[in-house]
Nucleic acid binder design. Structure first.
Lengths: 156, 156
DNA sequence: ACTGTACGGACAATGGCGTTGACCATCTTA
DNA sequence: TAAGATGGTCAACGCCATTGTCCGTACAGT
């Protein structure tokens, strides 16, 4: 019967696994024409895509203030990933939309993530990888996109 | 044959798993007399314990500047987790040591981590948990304590 | 033994990125 | 129509990292 590792290894491995995937994603994205994209931007663009958001809504989704969300949007606008348009029904609102460049980054991210996942499947076996994902689903909260980690990555 | 989930779920689950464990650890530590301890401090204390460190060495271990490491040490000193002493063989160096309070926090962390791991084992099964850890070991770098994530947590 | 270089530590200035507070314009509702 | 709620922006502040600079000590080559 194999002995159990110390309990602190588990969280570290989870963090390292996350870091490895994210670092490799952005290394590959940089090669594919998106050198300025930072880890947090991926989440922001995802959040914008699923529901044409405003700064306030985006802030709520990401768990930051509307001002912080506004600054992030400004950065992404400057980098050419999003654009803002006035809402004709409510002239207060400024709707944020992905540009072609922004959509391209998400399409490529999706492809790279699939490739990285395939590489893991080669290392540990496809069945084991599916089990790993299924197990993690059992011990983590169901809603994926609510991470509210203001300072975890460096945005803008 | 089960279909594979999209590749982006894997990193998110890893991150969420990490967050769940760390959040629960610190909630429990707060109950056990360590309400001021922040996630990053655990890593710092660990790094200090394995080798009586100085600010420079600690900075190298954690991947931050020596000034940043010095500030973190200062904070931990103010909170009563570490103390500084001069090195008699090299009067330039100020060696950082854990206080009893600091050691206590690590002992409790270890225990809580083991308990959290046991809870995961109840949910997904002890054998699956061991396999999960073994699989993660195959796809992550071997050296655990080199994470250099300056802004990931909020220290001090 | 002495001098030049390396190294540990601290102080200062700067910058990124989040926060709160305040304000204006617009929409909604009583 | 008046009152309150909501979206956006500006300003000030705080935290925490950075780089640059300086001082004192240790060590190595001559």
């Amino acid at each position: 019967m194999p002995s159990d590792p110390p309990g602190f290894e588990l969280p570290l491995r989870l963090l390292l696994g996350f870091r490895v995937l994210i670092d490799e994603l952005h290394a590959e994205l940089a090669r594919q024409g998106h050198p300025d994209l930072r880890p947090m931007h991926g989440f922001v663009l995802q959040a914008i895509m699923r529901g044409g958001d405003t700064a306030v809504e985006l802030g709520r989704t990401l768990g930051v203030s509307k001002q912080a969300a506004g600054k992030t949007i400004e950065t992404l606008e400057r980098l050419g990933y999003v654009e803002r348009a006035s809402d004709p029904r409510d002239t207060r609102r400024k709707i944020v939309r992905l540009t072609a460049h922004g959509t391209d980054s998400l399409v490529r991210s999706e492809r790279v993530f699939d490739e990285l996942r395939a590489r893991w499947a080669e290392v540990i076996g496809p069945e084991r990888l599916r089990e790993l994902e299924a197990d993690l689903r059992k011990v983590t909260p169901p809603d994926i996109f609510r991470l509210d980690v203001p300072g975890w990555f460096g945005a803008q």
